[in-house]
Design a protein around this nucleic acid. Sequence first.
RNA 1: GGAGCCUUAGCUCAAUUGGUUAGAGCGCCGCCCUGUCACGGCGGAGGUUGCGGGUUCGAGCCCCGUAGGCUCCGCCA
Length: 631
Amino acid sequence: MRTCKRNPACHPERSVAESKDPVALSRISRRDSSTSLGMTRNMYRTHDCNSLRKGDIGQQVTLAGWVHVSRDHGGVIFIDLRDHEGLTQVVFRPEENAELAKQAHTLRSEDVIQVSGRVAPRVPGTENPKLPTGDIEVIPSELHILNRADDLPFPIDAEVHNEDLRMMYRYYDLRRPQFAHNLRVRHRIAKATRDYLDSQGYVEVETPILSKSTPEGARDFLVPSRLTPGKFYALPQAPQQYKQLLMVAGLEKYFQIAKCFRDEDLRADRQPEFTQIDIEASFVTPDDIFAVTEGMLAAIFKAARNIDIKTPFDRLTYQEAVGRYGSDKPDRRFGMELVDLGDDFRSSSFKVFRGAIDAGGVVKAINAKGFAGITIGQADELTEIAKLFGAKGLAFIKVENGEWKSPIVKFFSEAEKTALQSKLEIEEGDCIFFGADKWEIACEVLGRLRLRIAEIQKLIPKSEIWDFLWVTDFPLFQWSPEENKWNAMHHPFTRPKTEDIPLFEAKNFPEIRAEAYDVVLNGVEIGGGSIRIHEPELQEKMFETLGVSPEDQQLLFGHLLHALHLGAPPHGGIALGLDRLVMLVCGEKSIRDVMAFPKNNRGMDLMANSPAEVDSRQLRELKLRLLEEKK
RNA sequence: GGAGCCUUAGCUCAAUUGGUUAGAGCGCCGCCCUGUCACGGCGGAGGUUGCGGGUUCGAGCCCCGUAGGCUCCGCCA
């Protein structure tokens, strides 16, 4: 599975992003060829390597690029010359120019050369239909070796799994057509974003990178201040407060393609520095934010992939999403929804189910169609997952030969069995998994099982599906048992739903819903936002609930509170993760594949070798001293 | 902080149950080759099997430890 990941033949539905084939790159490049042609005509070249066609036969041209591959027949030598646009075959013939052919014998992959010569038709029968330039070749009269390449650390036209090594030679790895494609898609997405938001009257404003640490949220990256020794800037986790202050400033429609920084552990889709499409507007309701986001995403998909996505997006409340899919970012590309069995087991004699319900919890189940053949290893793995997310164990029923196979079936009454049968639409070959616990735990456990089972059963459709949806009405607060206090689920500036504000007064915190929303694509959260609190009293009440003392409120958020007192308009917005979006559009599994210079798992750049030690003089200037490492 | 998987030539991988001198393809070097497009042919160099220890007559393979990579959990308002 892994080895064929990038083989287009295995996945014809995949984007050319998956392709290592330079031919595929040429296809997408043509869209831009009019602009790139203009750029390439200079002292180094008259055309790019994806320009020449039959109609150019007879022309004198100059090309420059890398030796992609050379096929040396002893006599005639074929060079596939590669640049960012594509490939052109260059043919050295001893009988045409012996001296040049001799030189061409020495060419190796990745040497940088410049050739001048005439465009010729290929010998009939030797045209290459796989190349856009496959009808012609260039017969050079001049060859300049601009730069030789040493022995290569790894091949760029083959799959290399050693990401470590690739990161060390990132500038070389980026020559892969896959990256040429991904970085172009990223550019187009950024451009479409700017163009669309500009058309809607949004103004791009840059906010400070040297910012201030705040107690809530992720760990900050700190930057020591030389001019005020002992004090630190923080790199922004998001431009959140600045954009709200821009609303107070009367800007009304703001956006920014903003670098954000969070000092947390990394994942395939998480880097310490990443990019958000950050949007904020005044006098808006969630519907306004939904509309501009949908319009923007439609423009992005049109520009990047020429895909027309369906708008408006479906909406699910948090309750619905978690209740039906066991996740606040449901992947709806397959079924296996959670089914509630509370009504059927309320007075059951099966103590595990009855007990969960009596304790105020739920009984839910999913039906994995055709999964009765589950192996012992798979069952163990799923049980591990269930336990990891808080279940005490995992009960399941295999339906084989018309028989329900499970140690728990004997506890079920006939009525209960009938209810299961009809609600879960049980058929021969199915496998039913149960969750009986507090609502949150039962849902999350089944949600995780659902995703893993879908993976095992390969339920996610091969064809490209772009399932966007909004998840709305998130809880405002989340209880933290570790800190023994309420935390903001989104962030402390999120406004409660107006109809829930009375609950706020009654200190019924778990019931309060926020005017907060996430946009989800194929089970991945690609963005989230909220309507913000614009009333200073409500903001103070919010801080109070979160355990921020009045003194700290002034110290940490004084500027924001003052701003709210100076006529802040109602406002709200959203932020979308650009890297994740590009990743999905490119069909990649990691955001590292859509960033030019990402960090590895431990936050290190193996190419530049950062982070690195600094000179003791630099530390002295900052009035910093390193602590001795404890052994 | 925790779990899983991985680490054999520059790269991608192989090596029966623990058994001779650790192999192949690509790349590299040399020679040959005039229509290829993953060109082809012949030859060659290239290895402390991540590192340390243990079990054994014998370890790439089994055990313990350790380092690194990736994925996940925690964490990421």
